[in-house]
Simulated assay, not measured.
Amino acid sequence: MSNSLFIGASQELDLASKLTSEGIIVSTPLVDIGVDLIASNKDFSNSIPIQVKYKSVERNIFFTGKEIDSYNSKNVYIAYYLAQESWFMPFSKFLELAERPEGRKDRAGYIKVKDKSTELAQYKGKQGFTLMIDAIKNA
């Protein structure tokens, strides 16, 4: 079993803990519905599904075509961890910034972090986390 599975699971738990400390109610689906967490405000009037991704060596924010198809119709937020850096953004923003080369059989999409650093700045680290908290609490 790959160590990255354990690291990914720990990232999910860490994010759930941080959201909880901000007064967000966090649930994990009992069945695989294509997202890792469901975050709700205190009165449950707003819930946002969150997909958590962790990559230790990759330098791009990457989703397969199958994942893109799955998240595209949902109001999904992504929490993407690349080594020690993190981004928190609506999946719709990923789609807006992503490259999707037509020749790829897997229909994948990716954001080259070094090329899109300006566009990604507001979603990076604490600033992006705060935007996600606001989206959960105030939508």
Score class of each variant (00 low, 15 high):
residue 60 N to V: 10
residue 27 S to Q: 11
residue 38 I to P: 00
residue 27 S to I: 06
residue 25 I to D: 06
residue 52 V to M: 03
residue 102 E to Q: 12
residue 122 Q to L: 12
residue 13 L to K: 11
residue 131 L to N: 07
residue 85 E to R: 13
residue 128 G to T: 02
residue 122 Q to T: 08
residue 125 G to H: 07
residue 127 Q to D: 15
residue 51 Q to H: 05
residue 26 V to F: 08
residue 86 S to E: 09
residue 58 E to M: 09
residue 29 P to H: 06
residue 56 S to W: 00
residue 120 L to N: 00
residue 110 Y to W: 15
residue 127 Q to M: 13
residue 120 L to S: 00
residue 134 D to K: 15
residue 8 G to I: 07
residue 85 E to V: 04
residue 32 D to W: 03
residue 132 M to T: 02
residue 62 F to G: 00
residue 36 D to S: 06
residue 48 I to H: 03
residue 3 N to Q: 11
residue 4 S to M: 14
residue 93 K to R: 13
residue 68 I to Q: 02
residue 84 Q to L: 08
residue 12 E to L: 12
residue 95 L to A: 04
residue 131 L to P: 01
residue 133 I to S: 09
residue 131 L to S: 12
residue 87 W to K: 01
residue 6 F to I: 11
residue 94 F to D: 08
residue 23 G to S: 12
residue 48 I to W: 06
residue 45 S to E: 11
residue 79 A to I: 01
residue 34 G to T: 09
residue 24 I to V: 15
residue 68 I to P: 03
residue 132 M to G: 01
residue 87 W to C: 03
residue 87 W to I: 03
residue 94 F to T: 04
residue 48 I to E: 05
residue 53 K to N: 04
residue 100 R to D: 01
residue 65 G to K: 02
residue 5 L to E: 06
residue 120 L to M: 02
residue 6 F to H: 09
residue 131 L to D: 02
residue 50 I to S: 04
residue 20 T to R: 13
residue 100 R to P: 07
residue 124 K to A: 11
residue 68 I to F: 07
residue 60 N to A: 08
residue 70 S to P: 00
residue 80 Y to I: 07
residue 74 K to Y: 05
residue 68 I to E: 04
residue 51 Q to I: 00
residue 33 I to A: 14
residue 94 F to Y: 12
residue 7 I to T: 14
residue 45 S to Q: 11
residue 107 R to K: 14
residue 54 Y to L: 09
residue 33 I to S: 09
residue 23 G to R: 08
residue 5 L to Q: 15
residue 19 L to V: 12
residue 65 G to W: 00
residue 17 S to Q: 15
residue 18 K to S: 11
residue 53 K to H: 03
residue 123 Y to L: 01
residue 99 E to T: 13
residue 47 S to C: 12
residue 106 D to G: 10
residue 43 D to F: 06
residue 5 L to A: 14
residue 6 F to C: 05
residue 109 G to F: 00
residue 31 V to I: 14
residue 115 D to T: 00
residue 90 P to N: 06
residue 137 K to L: 14
residue 55 K to D: 04
residue 27 S to C: 15
residue 38 I to A: 07
residue 99 E to Q: 14
residue 74 K to W: 04
residue 79 A to G: 10
residue 81 Y to K: 13
residue 23 G to D: 14
residue 39 A to C: 14
residue 84 Q to T: 13
residue 41 N to K: 14
residue 14 D to R: 15
residue 30 L to Y: 06
residue 77 Y to Q: 09
residue 21 S to T: 15
residue 105 K to A: 13
residue 91 F to T: 02
residue 55 K to S: 11
residue 3 N to T: 10
residue 38 I to D: 05
residue 92 S to V: 05
residue 80 Y to A: 01
residue 41 N to I: 10
residue 16 A to F: 10
residue 113 V to S: 05
residue 126 K to C: 08
residue 11 Q to N: 08
residue 25 I to Q: 12
residue 19 L to H: 08
residue 82 L to G: 01
residue 82 L to N: 04
residue 110 Y to S: 04
residue 128 G to V: 05
residue 26 V to N: 11
residue 31 V to T: 15
residue 90 P to L: 09
residue 139 A to Y: 04
residue 76 V to H: 09
residue 22 E to T: 05
residue 104 R to K: 09
residue 108 A to S: 15
residue 96 E to F: 04
residue 91 F to Q: 02
residue 132 M to W: 02
